[in-house]
Write a protein that binds this DNA or RNA. Sequence first.
DNA 1: ACAATAAGTGGGGTGGCACCCCGCTTCTGC
DNA 2: GCAGAAGCGGGGTGCCACCCCACTTATTGT
Lengths: 181, 181
Amino acid sequence: MRADAQRNYDRIVEAASEAVARDGAEASLEEIARRAGVGSATLHRHFPNRWALMGAVFHGRTEELCERAGELESVPDPHEALVTWLRELAAYSATARGLAAVLLAEPLQQSESCGAMLVTAGEKLRLRAVEAGTVRPDVSIADLLTLVNAIALAAEKTGPAEAERLVSLAMDGISARPLRR
Amino acid sequence: MRADAQRNYDRIVEAASEAVARDGAEASLEEIARRAGVGSATLHRHFPNRWALMGAVFHGRTEELCERAGELESVPDPHEALVTWLRELAAYSATARGLAAVLLAEPLQQSESCGAMLVTAGEKLRLRAVEAGTVRPDVSIADLLTLVNAIALAAEKTGPAEAERLVSLAMDGISARPLRR
DNA sequence: ACAATAAGTGGGGTGGCACCCCGCTTCTGC
DNA sequence: GCAGAAGCGGGGTGCCACCCCACTTATTGT
């Protein structure tokens, strides 16, 4: 990649980050290009569609979340580690407007994508919890991520606190029965 | 309302129903107007924004779901009644592309809205389950509907079966502990 | 240092969209 | 059957995503 192309790429991602923070994932691509100081054609050449751009925008944050998953592997209680991570993921998704939509929209299998990164990071936490016997083995990491993303998407209007509450609710279940762990 | 205005209203809703079934809630309003045989201005006069139209489209179906809630009140097991209703709601929302998005988008309190109808219908089922002691009293009907709609939205691509599975999952919780009901 | 060339750029075009204005048509109460 | 109001829709505006192609710029070999 040529040096100037790299510079434009970075400028676009930076402008897109600001735009997404302000307007959500539906931000105008034209305006992003304008603010990045490039033509709209340049934006469309680097990112063939909106999701590709959003993927780049959220890539950094996704890496942080994956690192956080790594940290949580050293938490003694595997169940707590998993639930904590899922709650943090929900809280961040609910704040960074559009991340949840991007994660749900993009095919989860495709490597290099944000979704794939989260799958591999989260799978370790899930497996540890299953081995500890606190999580049903028939629940896949894809199930958990879909559930959490769904909640984050729904809670985008009501805020991260509500998102975390709903995640806790879904993890524990709605039934009034004593917790036996 | 004048007779011709009523006729146009009905035509628009019918065309919109077809369009939504095909393209989801993001269907082109212009095309809906075209297929209804009216000018786009007429559509915009009857429905000031997209959600107003979607509300009208889903009104009939929402009524059916409310009736279904009424039927389920006579099911002996209150917990089963509630979960069955929520699962059916999720399955329908996942099929009728866009219903979930509409329900999440519109303010839940506003009367006459689809959301409000579902709240009053579902609240009875929830209350019965709480009184039977099978559902935690701190879980509101709004929580449940948000959760179910979120799942339906996320499962729009994967189909109603997956939506039902995730609802069941959220209702029971992910933990590997014996069901004590 | 510089020319050849491949890579990258952006102004401007296209078609589609939501939404609005306003002169015209059609219904309705009397 | 008529006056006035209620409703209508063609056409306009401004915004958008996305594309084409003549031009500019970085790189590479000498």
